[in-house]
């Protein structure tokens, strides 16, 4: 009989090696590429930081990066704020928890591409919403502010990521010991006070988890800005894709990917630090 430790290592090794290799090797090569340069059809392999200089001084890159962070931040706030009451409802106000959780996760399992595409059809100039409002005589001109802007991107992403906000918050609400809430009531706290001083602080870990799960992938989202963002709502991923596609400048694309990743990482770390201190303070 081999020891417990070696059995555990042997069984988990294929999965962790697979993920480890497919994270570290591509990232390593990405770093190397980012120091190379594209010369028309071939790649010049002399080490240079010219891509970084170009990317960091280009106002377009900075603009898209700031916008991506901003949009992802708005999406995170909107999704968490909209989801919190639902998580609360499922945790405390309904007996049919499983049914509700299922209802909320089902739409998420349909194709992401198709859901985003559907929002484009809803918000378009001749789209579902405008035509519905027109035929109800609520408006006499199609609304033009619906599609191809940052708002459309935020709305679409807030829809796409809803379950990722609801589930972690629900789990953290579930963990609250009811006797704590009873104690708060017995000590004379109003329902609102006991929510802000007991329930909310205890769900900070859930809120932080939900925010990270939404924020990190959203910064690098490609489909939504491409379909509903227009030129006003383009994000950093669209620029990266152009480098790997039409512009055919892979080294610059690699540089942009790395810059985006580092930026996301820094913002995420900053957020976790801020949120945990804030969580401690309300308590």
């Amino acid at each position: 009989m081999r020891s417990e430790a070696s059995k555990g290592l042997a069984l988990s090794a294929p999965a962790s090696l697979y993920v480890g290799a497919l994270v570290s090797i591509p990232l390593g090569i990405l770093v190397v590429y980012s120091f190379w340069t594209q010369t028309y059809v071939s790649i010049d392999k002399t080490f240079t930081a010219v891509n970084y200089r170009e990317a960091l001084t280009d106002p377009l890159v900075r603009h898209l990066l700031v916008r991506s962070i901003f949009i992802a931040g708005m999406v995170t706030i909107a999704t968490v704020a909209l989801a919190y009451p639902i998580a609360y409802f499922i945790a405390f106000r309904t007996q049919k928890k499983t049914l509700w959780l299922l209802l909320i996760t089902i739409p998420f399992w349909s194709s992401y591409l198709l859901r985003v595409f559907s929002w484009k059809l809803i918000l378009g100039f001749n789209g579902v919403l405008n035509s519905a409002l027109l035929s109800l005589n609520l408006i006499d001109q199609p609304l033009t502010f619906l599609l191809y802007n940052e708002l459309a991107v935020v709305l679409t992403l807030a829809h796409a990521w809803a379950p990722f906000a609801i589930l972690p918050i629900y789990v953290s609400l579930q963990k609250i010991d009811p006797s704590l809430l009873e104690a708060a009531t017995d000590l004379g706290l109003s329902p609102a006070e006991s929510f802000f001083r007991v329930t909310l602080p205890m769900t900070v870990p859930g809120i932080v988890a939900a925010s990270l799960i939404i924020f990190i992938p959203t910064v690098g989202d490609y489909v939504t800005p491409a379909l509903v963002g227009g030129s006003e709502g383009k994000m950093i991923a669209n620029l990266i894709q152009v480098q790997f596609g039409a512009a055919n400048n892979w080294p610059l694309g690699a540089t942009l990917s790395l810059i985006a990743m580092v930026t996301v990482g820094l913002v995420a770390i900053l957020f976790v630090v801020l949120a945990t201190t804030a969580g401690r303070r309300i308590r």
Binding site: I29, L30, Y33, L212, D221, F244, A254, S257, M261
Partner: peptide
């Protein structure tokens, strides 16, 4: 894999 932005997974894997 759940928390790496898709575009970064895609671009780095393509290069690799």
């Amino acid at each position: 894999p759940l928390v790496i932005p898709g575009i970064i997974v895609a671009s780095s894997m393509l290069i690799m």
